[in-house]
Every structure is written in structure tokens, then in C-alpha cells.
Design a protein around this nucleic acid. Structure first.
Length: 840
RNA sequence: GCGAAAGUGGCGGAAUUGGCAGACGCGCUGGACUUAGGAUCCAGUGAGGUUAAACUCAUAGGGGUUCAAGUCCCCUCUUUCGCACCA
């Protein structure tokens, strides 16, 4: 293997020396700083951003392909004349870094900085046009300081609160776990059973923005799929809140329902064990073993399993009753496993006749059914019901609402509740507030001090950032390492000076990534997160690129933050990302390329052997940006061969290309073959522009480059061309590097320079076609008889329809297929075809 | 279960508004060349058929609209993704 590579490299020195070329241009780009976007420019701005990488230290080919798409767009927009900013940075806080440091007996700060240095080299070797002067890293105090500042602003606006709630808790790791970190009820890291623990956690009130987050009218171009996912995630439903009364008290038990039309059919109430009333009863009846056991069991059940549709509904009668305000009915209150505490009001009015879940539960526990909506044919009977009747119908057993249509009854009944003070019309969302607390060291500290006298006190601005202490022993204790740094925890209260304690929870890393796109506009500002002026200049991000897996996480959080920052007056626009492209993954051996699957390809391996341009060209050519790419070693070679042929074409013809630039006007006659080349050139430019600028379909743009190359290579002996022909040939050759530049920038720049050009390709405009040359002397019409291809004719472009028909009917093969039959219709599609319909 | 997207050669994928299906690349076959290479060049390559043509069939399967359907409509199948006790 080694021998082969060596030998090959030597051979290659004769021609396409990609290693040298790529280093050369990477250096030139850096020295000239052409990708450092100025904050003032006569050009219009264009902000291209790919979701920043996690600072894992290693970029495999799968990661790289994401950034290639952004880089292509960025270079295209530069050619088009925009002031392009394409920044890069690192998502650098988080559990993986902390775990990595534990494994390597190091400190996350050190390992993360090492990783970042390694990634920078990797990025450079792939030829990215990043604005390195704007590099950020979320784990540096100059960045996270402003995350803390934002936390404070959110707090001041009432958008942050602490709440006790049941959380996935791993006792061994001593932290809250997200739902996706719980695998079959066990901790993904240590395997111990995850419990539900009632903890006080910090929340961001994202639900406050639920309504606006459903509105996508201000984005320019987002995939419909992502919009649907976010809308489903937010899950808006209209309904009513109605207060039932706990029997024997004045206590109200509010319920939320989307079906107020069924309210006369309520036969019991269902509460989850987490409900405050239930919690109160648990305290009142410590000896009620049945109740205690049931609630304990349900609460500790895995959240995912518990909310699965297949899970059998279970419950226990609480011994209490509630009163339905509409009819005074006395209904049993059941504690069940199928009601969720954190949706609606956490209490459900159960209507077994008209709700499938309630139906199943009632059947099991012999709770009566009451029909209040009849089928139009009035055939519904309680004894015969096999399932709940959830369709609309006619109201029965519902006092004054009897006889009306159930769909109309929804608003009538809601209004009746409002008039009587029993309830109100409300909207409920599936979206929950965002729990941002993490009991981990490697994250942004929550800037709060707990004072025994003043309670929660925000750290004053002048004391920001609350820096993470360095002297922790990561991994030494299972507890949050911050708990073991008393000199950090114990501080005087900023308000009263009493001895107080710092908050030791850190923020979810999604907080860090919710506003980084804005920080790039002014990354070195040490007075504020970013200046309003610069944010208004650069924002919104014109083109954002990233994986669909962030549809309901990062992309939703960032929209929330953006709207909040707009309400603070920090930014003007309504949406952070005007256009979104969700790129596909790189697939190898049938699976996503990932370290854990062991199917990663190291870009360095490919770059050393074929060059970054080959890697870029292959990945972009293999499929459209939003689709997955199948990794293929053979495909790489195809891209490599293509670039070598480009190299040879231009390198072999430099003399002619240079000579043609000295030629003045000339009026030599042009041969047919050169006329075809001229047409191919302009047609290729036309299609390339369509693919690159209109459709963003880079695979076909590269295919166009390949076809164009093949067309030029048809010219065998350029030395025999006359002056006029030579100019056409040279124009074609000079166009190719321009078309290649976004995909394979190094080879394009090198060839462009070798041709004698002094400027660089980002600065020389898009290739332009000339309408006049998109016309050929002859056009081919195909002739169909009854829809089948029967012949082709070549005609003048400006020929009349009648004439085409005549010529078409004269074609032998066409005649044969018409034979004895009558011609019913002849259709001429201009420039394309003649369709003849025949029959008896 | 509900919703969405998709299904095209041996493979990745083209086909812009209903208008020559399979662009481009890989692979494969045959040939040329020799610095025997992960090199280059030429020719061929959906299936059947033919010396070569003609011709027939073909875009998951079945029906329909149309002079004309990968593209539009209806039904079925498969795959992928999202949601899935949200009252």
C-alpha cells in the first residue's frame, strides 16, 4: 500500500500537484484575508452559517460535508458580488467534554482547547473560506459571560423561574437526565435505574412565545418538513378550562378539555399521582398503603414507558368526590397513570362514552358511562358500546343544550361556563417550558446567589462572568464537581452582604447555541453581547445549514431567543434564519458515519491521496445537498479523474489561451464544431447558474461542469484554429475554472492564475452567458406517432409550424406508421416535437 | 394507529412547466498505449430482439385522464422520517 501511494505521488508530480496547490492557496487566502468580512461595505451583505460543530477534536467526512455546502454558497455569493460573512466557532461545553476529560485524567478546559486547535487545522486543510477573525467558543468566559447576561435579562422579564418537578434522576451520576438519555429506564452512562425525583430546577418560559413560534410567515425559505415538526411539537389546541369543586370544600379543581360538548357526560375525574392535591392526600394518609404504593409505583415508572399508548391504564379510587358545576353531578376522583401532570391543568374530566382512554379505564374499573352525544340515527346504547363514540353528533342528556349539534355546543357550553364564572376559553400547548438546569461542571454557571435573607439574588453585571473555577477534580466525585469548591460557592450576598451560596447548576448547552449566530456579528465586544448596529447590519442569517435532527431543539430554542432579543430591542428582524437548508448525512455501510459505529472516514486520508478539492467535488456531486450521500471509495476516484482532466486540458492549452487574449477583433469564419462549442459553453453557463443560484442543486451543477469539460475536449487540435475560433476556445477554457471555483476552489484559482489572471476568482464575477449563442443554426424535432418516437428532423429555428408538419409527414418511418390510418390531430411543440395522432 | 416524504439500470443519481426516460459519475465489456498505474485514450453498456436495423417492453404494482405521464388523478404495496394516552 505504502509503495503504491509513494509511487503514485511521484507520478503525479508531473501534472496535478494538488498537495502543493492546496497549501499555496490556503496560505494566500489567509494572508490576503479575503474571507474576513468587513462590517462596512458598498456591497450588499450575505450571512452564511453552518451549525457550529461540537468541539470533539475530530471532524470526519460526515461533518465536513455539512460545511462544504455552506462554503459553496459562500463562495458563490462572493462571486455574485455580496459582502459575505461565513464564521465558524465551537460548541464547547457539555457532558462529552467532561467525560472525555475524566477518561483521560485531564481537565475539560485543556482537552477542549486542544480539540479546537486540531479542528482548526482540519478545517484549513479542507479549504474553507471562514472568517477566522470571528471565531468563538462557548466555553470561553468572553462568550459565556454574555450568556449569563442574557439569563439575567430573561429573569428580569419574568421569563425564568424555578419549579419543583419530577425529573429523570440518576443517583449514581448525581444529575438530571434528559428523556433521551434514559434508555429502557436506565442511565445511558452508568446503567443504573433512573428514578423520578422531585427537584427544584430552572426553567425558561419558552411557552410564553408559543403562539409566535407557530408563525412562520417571517422566514423566507424553510423546509416544510421542519415547519411541520415545530408546529406539531408546539401542539396548539383550543379548549376550555372548567373548575370542578372538591366535594365538601371550596377548593377548585381546574380541568382542561378540548371537548366541552361532552361535559354533561363526565362520570369521573382522573388525576396523576404528581397532582398537588394527590400529593397533599399522600401526606394526610401515610398509612393508606394501597394509595402510597400505587402513587409511588407510578411516579417512579419510566416516563417514556408510562406515556406509551400500549401501557395498560391503571388507577385507584381516591375516596374523594368532585362536583360538576354544570349539573351538580357527584363524581369519583381517581388517581391514574394515564394523565400527565404537565399538560393542561394536570387534571382530566373523564367522559368514558366519548373518549377512548376514559372508556378503557371505565370498563376496567366498572365506572358508569353516560351518553351525551348521539349518532345522527340515535342508535348509540351504553350496553352495546365497544368503543368510545368520539365523532360529532346531536346533544342529549345535556339540559338546555339538548338537540343542538355537538360542534356548535362547544362554544355554547364554553360561553355558558364563562357567564357562570365556572371557567374560561383557553389554549393549551404541548410545548413545555425549557428545563435548563444541569448538575454538571462543564457548562455555563447560572449567575445566581442564594441568600438566606434575600433569597434568589442575581449576580450584578459588574461581577459577570461567574467564571468556572479551574481547581476542580473532575471525576473525583460523583457529585457536581462545583459542590467541592467551597471558596467558589461561598460568597457574600451582593445585596445584604450576609454569607450566601452560589447556584451550582450550570445551563443546558442548548442555551449557549441559542444566540451564537448573533455573537458572530460582533464577536469581540466586551461591553455588550453584540452591538445593535452590527446585528442589524448582518442579521438575519441569510442561509443557515444544518441537520434536521435539530428541528425541535436548537432551531426552536434559537427562534425563542431571537424573539426575546427582538423584544429587548437588541435586534430588529423577527427570525434568526431567513433560509434553512437541512443537509443529508454521509452514509457508509448502510449507516450514518459515526465514531461509535466505527465507519468513519478521516478526511486527512482522502486529502493526502487525492486532495481537498477531490473530496469536496465528490461529496457535492454524489447527491443533492438535502439528501444523504453514500460514501464510495470509487466515487472519490471519479471526482479525482475529473479534476485531473480539467488540469490537463488547461495546462496543455495555456499557450493558446494566453495568445487569444492578445488577439483583437477578427472576422474569420467559424467552423461548425466551434459553433457547437460556443453553444455548449453558453448553455453550460446558463444551466450552471440555474443549478447554483436558483435551485441550489450542486450535484447537477458539477455534472454540468463535467459535460462542459467533455465538450471542450472534443476540440482535438487547437493549434489549427483561426483567431476567431481560438477566442471561442479560450473563452470556454477560461470559463471552466470559474464554474469549478465554488466546488474545487484551489485548482480553480491555480488554473486561473496560470492563465495569466491577476485577480482572484471570488472577485471576478459569475460566469455570464450570451443569449445570442444559446441559439443553434438547426434544431432537432422529434416526431411521435400515437405517442411513440418514430423519427427526428433537423430544421431551421424560425421555421413555420405548417412547414414542420409537412416535413414530419414526409419522414419514411413516420409514413410507415401512419400507413392507412387517418390523421386525427397534429400537435407541434415549438422547438421540441411534432406529435401525430392517428386512428381508423 | 395518525401525518408527511419517497420508490427510476448492477450502483449514486438526472429528467426546470406533462413533451426524446436513464444526463453526469461509478462499475462492467472490448480495444489502444506502456513509466504495468488507484494512469491515460477510444468504443460500448436498461431488458428482449437483430449481422445491423426495425421493433417490443420498461420509472414499486394496478387502473384512469391526455396526441403525449417518471411527472396529474384513484387504489394497493414497500421504505424512510416525524408524532403517538397531550384530555
Amino acid at each position: 500500500m505504502y509503495y503504491k501511494i509513494k509511487r503514485y505521488t511521484w507520478r503525479n508530480k508531473m501534472e496535478y500537484k494538488f498537495n502543493e496547490i492546496e497549501k499555496k492557496w490556503q496560505n494566500i487566502w489567509r494572508e490576503k484575508g479575503i474571507f474576513n468580512a468587513p462590517d462596512k461595505s458598498s456591497k450588499p451583505k450575505y450571512y452564511v452559517l453552518s451549525m457550529f460543530p461540537y468541539a470533539s477534536g475530530v471532524l470526519h467526512v460526515g461533518h465536513a460535508s455539512n460545511y462544504f455546502i455552506g462554503d459553496v454558497i459562500s463562495r458563490l455569493k462572493m462571486m455574485e458580488g455580496f459582502n459575505v460573512m461565513q464564521p465558524i466557532g465551537y460548541d464547547a461545553f457539555g457532558m462529552p467534554a467532561e467525560n472525555y476529560a475524566i477518561e483521560h485524567n485531564s481537565h475539560p478546559r485543556l482537552t477542549t482547547e486542544e480539540n479546537i486547535a486540531a479542528m482548526r487545522i482540519q478545517f484549513d486543510s479542507m479549504g474553507f473560506g471562514f472568517d477566522w477573525s470571528r471565531e468563538i467558543s462557548t466555553c470561553r468566559p468572553d462568550y459565556y459571560r454574555w450568556g449569563q447576561y442574557l439569563f439575567k435579562k430573561l429573569y428580569e422579564k419574568g421569563l425564568v423561574y424555578r419549579k419543583k418537578g419530577f425529573q429523570n434522576w440518576c443517583d449514581k451520576c448525581q444529575t438530571v437526565l434528559a428523556n433521551e438519555q434514559v434508555v429502557d429506564g436506565h442511565c445511558w452512562r452508568c446503567g443504573s435505574i433512573v428514578e423520578q425525583k422531585e427537584l427544584e430546577q430552572w426553567y425558561f418560559k419558552i411557552t410564553e412565545y408559543a403562539e409566535e413560534l407557530l408563525d412562520f410567515s417571517k422566514v423566507i425559505d424553510w423546509p416544510e418538513r421542519v415547519i411541520t415538526m415545530q408546529k406539531n411539537w408546539i401542539g396548539r389546541s383550543e379548549g376550555a378550562k372548567v373548575d370542578f369543586i372538591l366535594e365538601g370544600t371550596n377548593e377548585k379543581i381546574p380541568i382542561f378539555t378540548t371537548r366541552p360538548d361532552t361535559i354533561y357526560g363526565v362520570t369521573f375525574m382522573a388525576l396523576p399521582p404528581e397532582h398537588p392535591l394527590v400529593q397533599k392526600w399522600l401526606k394526610e394518609e401515610p398509612d393508606n398503603k394501597e394509595l402510597q404504593d400505587f402513587c409511588h409505583k407510578v411516579i417512579n415508572e419510566d416516563k417514556v414507558l408510562r406515556s406509551a399508548e400500549e401501557t395498560i391504564k391503571e388507577g385507584i379510587f381516591s375516596g374523594r368526590y368532585a362536583i360538576n358545576p354544570f349539573n351538580g353531578d357527584r363524581i369519583q376522583i381517581w388517581i391514574t397513570n394515564y394523565v400527565l401532570m404537565d399538560y393542561g391543568t394536570g387534571a382530566v374530566m373523564a367522559v368514558p362514552a366519548h373518549d377512548q382512554r376514559d372508556f378503557e379505564f371505565a370498563l376496567k374499573y366498572h365506572i358508569p358511562l353516560k351518553i351525551v352525544i348521539q349518532k345522527p340515527d340515535m342508535s348509540l346504547k351504553v350496553e352495546e358500546m365497544q368503543e368510545a363514540y368520539i365523532e360529532p353528533g346531536i346533544m342529549v342528556n345535556s339540559d338546555k343544550f339538548n338537540g343542538i349539534d355537538s360542534e356548535e355546543a362547544i362554544s355554547a357550553i364554553t360561553n355558558w361556563a364563562v357567564e357562570n364564572g365556572w371557567g374560561e376559553k383557553t389554549v393549551s400547548y404541548r410545548l413545555r417550558d425549557w428545563c435548563i438546569s444541569r448538575q454538571r461542571y462543564w457548562g455555563n454557571p447560572i449567575p445566581v446567589i442564594h441568600c438566606p435573607h434575600c433569597g434568589i439574588v442575581l449576580v450584578p453585571d459588574q461581577d459577570l462572568p461567574v467564571e468556572l473555577p479551574d481547581n476542580v477534580q473532575v471525576g473525583r466525585t460523583t457529585k457536581n464537581p462545583l459542590l467541592s469548591v467551597p471558596e467558589w460557592i461561598n460568597v457574600p450576598c451582593p445585596k445584604c452582604g450576609a454569607s450566601a451560596k452560589r447556584e451550582t447548576d450550570t445551563m443546558d448547552t442548548f442555551v449557549d447555541s441559542s444566540w451564537y449566530y448573533a455573537r458572530y456579528t460582533d464577536p469581540n465586544n466586551d461591553k455588550e453581547p453584540f452591538s445593535k448596529e452590527l446585528a442589524d447590519y448582518w442579521l438575519p442569517v441569510d442561509q443557515y445549514i444544518g441537520g434536521i435532527e435539530h428541528a425541535c431543539m436548537h432551531l426552536l430554542y434559537a427562534r425563542f431567543f431571537h424573539k426575546f432579543m427582538r423584544d429587548l430591542g437588541w435586534v430588529k428582524c423577527d427570525e434568526p434564519f431567513a433560509r434553512l437548508l437541512t443537509q443529508g448525512m454521509v452514509i457508509k455501510d448502510g449507516a450514518k458515519m459515526s465514531k461509535s459505529k466505527g465507519n468513519v472516514v478521516d478526511p486527512k486520508y482522502i486529502i493526502d491521496r487525492f486532495g481537498a478539492d477531490t473530496l469536496r467535488t465528490f461529496l457535492l456531486f454524489a447527491s443533492p445537498p438535502e439528501k444523504d450521500v453514500d460514501w464510495s471509495d470509487d466515487g472519490i476516484i471519479g471526482a479525482f479523474r475529473f479534476l485531473k482532466r480539467v488540469w490537463r486540458l488547461i495546462d496543455n492549452n495555456l499557450e493558446f489561451i494566453k495568445r487569444s487574449s492578445q488577439l483583437g477583433e477578427c472576422s474569420d469564419s467559424i467552423s461548425e464544431i466551434i459553433k457547437v462549442l460556443r453553444y455548449e459553453t453558453h448553455y453550460a453557463i446558463y444551466r450552471w447558474r440555474e443549478d447554483c443560484l436558483q435551485r441550489m442543486q450542486f450535484n447537477t451543477a458539477i455534472a454540468t461542469c463535467m459535460e462542459f469539460l467533455n465538450a471542450i475536449l472534443k476540440i482535438q487540435e487547437p493549434e489549427k484554429l483561426n483567431a476567431a475560433e481560438l477566442k471561442i476556445f479560450a473563452f470556454a477554457c477560461a470559463t471552466l475554472p470559474k464554474m469549478l471555483y465554488p466546488f474545487a476552489p484551489h485548482i480553480a484559482e491555480e488554473l486561473w492564475q496560470k492563465m495569466g489572471n491577476k485577480n482572484m476568482l471570488n472577485d471576478c464575477g459569475l460566469p455570464e452567458y450570451d443569449e445570442r449563442f444559446l441559439m443553434l443554426d438547426k434544431i432537432t424535432y422529434v416526431i411521435q406517432v400515437n405517442g411513440k418516437l418514430r423519427g427526428k428532423i433537423e430544421v431551421e429555428p424560425d421555421i413555420k409550424e405548417e412547414e414542420i408538419k409537412q416535413i414530419a409527414l414526409e419522414v419514411d418511418n413516420v409514413k410507415r406508421h401512419i400507413s392507412e390510418q387517418d390523421i386525427k390531430k397534429i400537435i407541434v411543440v415549438p422547438g421540441k416535437m411534432v406529435s401525430i395522432a392517428v386512428g381508423k
